[in-house]
Simulated scan of single mutants.
Amino acid sequence: MLVLLVALAATAVTDAGWSWPRPGAVGWVALACLPLVFRSRAPFAVAAVVVATELVAELVAKNTTMIPGASLVAVYTVASLRPRRTAWLTGSVVAVIIAVCGLRVSGETAVSVQALVRFDVLILVTAVGDAVRSRRAQLAAAERRAVRAEQTREEEARRRVTEERIRIARELHDVVAHHVALVNAQAGVAQYLVRTDAEKAYRALGDIKETSHAALEELRSTVGLLRQPDDAPPSLTPVPDLDDLDSLVESFRRAGMTVEVTRTGDRRPLASAAGLAAYRIVQEALTNTHKHAGTATASVTLAYGTEMLEITVADDGSGTAPPGLGTGHGLIGMHERAAAFGGTLTAGPCPQGGFRVHAELPFPSRPKDNR
């Protein structure tokens, strides 16, 4: 502001030639520059006060050589802070007013050099202010887009991490709950038989060995998902699906539970991930039956329809098991597995006793034959 005041004061001379600035003209210049301190807070009001002050100064001092510098700064501020239409309207009005007032004071024609210079300089300042405002808006928009893009990437990364964590937790729960329940049952059988039938006890211990080996393989395969790219490769154990249902059922039978399997309809394959989900649903349902109903008789029904596979696992409620409270993670996991593939799952007590789990998983859509 001080530099502008000194520069404008140097122009406050008489028309007769170079001389020291007149004190009155310098005072008017200072008075016109003073409102510029508040130009960012109230650009319109400051522009109006500055233009009015310079016009009055020109009429009083009769100095047509003085440059309207304060008006230039005020107009630039309006153009750089306000919308384009408002900026150009303000700049044009101020340019016309100052040019016409200069002509009235000097008595020159409308096409005089001085009038054209004043008009053109104010229009140029308006254009510069508008360009600065546009550039500032572009930079702000680019920064906002960058921030939104970064936030979107972070949210997507967090979402994927959460989904992967839930999926791995679900896998670990199913694997651990199933195999530990079987090992516990087989260990109980071996403990009972070790004094009465050594041969059967030996076979029970073999079943424990096989079950624990299968648990370790599945755990190794699941934990392998957490490895980094430069770690050793995970286990190559195939992902289980409904083709492995007989082996699953046999493991429960060896643990002392009666399981009946029924298949109806024409067998159709599910997608790989959906097959794993179906296998885990049956596995978790049978594990819950063994955990809460002990040696109850369970039935597994696979009904292959035209559009979806219906899975029903139920028990007659005749078995007994030590009382205990479950965490509910198994049922939550079964619901999530079914929902992940557009299916549904219901679970609850049967009217005649026992517990029933019913899931529906859609088959992959077949491509239409356009022949």
Rank of each mutant, 00 (worst) to 15 (best):
L309W: 04
L31W: 08
R170M: 13
N370F: 13
V94D: 01
A277E: 04
R153Q: 11
Y279P: 00
P35H: 06
R41Q: 14
T11D: 03
D246F: 07
Y192E: 11
S134V: 15
V51W: 00
M257R: 13
V121G: 00
A110W: 12
G317K: 11
A185W: 02
R195N: 07
R104Q: 05
A137K: 07
A99L: 02
C33A: 14
L2R: 08
M257C: 06
G102Y: 13
L103Q: 07
V239M: 06
T64R: 05
T152C: 04
G328D: 04
L89Y: 11
A303N: 09
L182S: 01
A285Q: 10
S92V: 15
V111D: 03
R136D: 10
D197L: 01
R144G: 08
P240D: 09
K209M: 07
E154S: 09
A25M: 12
L34D: 01
E217H: 11
T262C: 02
K291F: 05
V259Q: 02
P323F: 11
L270K: 01
L172W: 12
P238I: 15
D315H: 07
G256H: 14
V100N: 00
S235D: 15
E336I: 03
V37I: 15
V183A: 10
T320K: 04
H179V: 00
P233N: 07
L225A: 12
R135K: 08
L361D: 00
E163K: 13
V175F: 06
E150Q: 13
M308A: 06
P83V: 07
S221H: 11
G17T: 15
R267C: 08
A32E: 03
R165V: 14
R227A: 09
S92D: 03
G348V: 08
K200V: 07
S19T: 14
L122C: 01
P364Y: 14
V239F: 07
L182V: 09
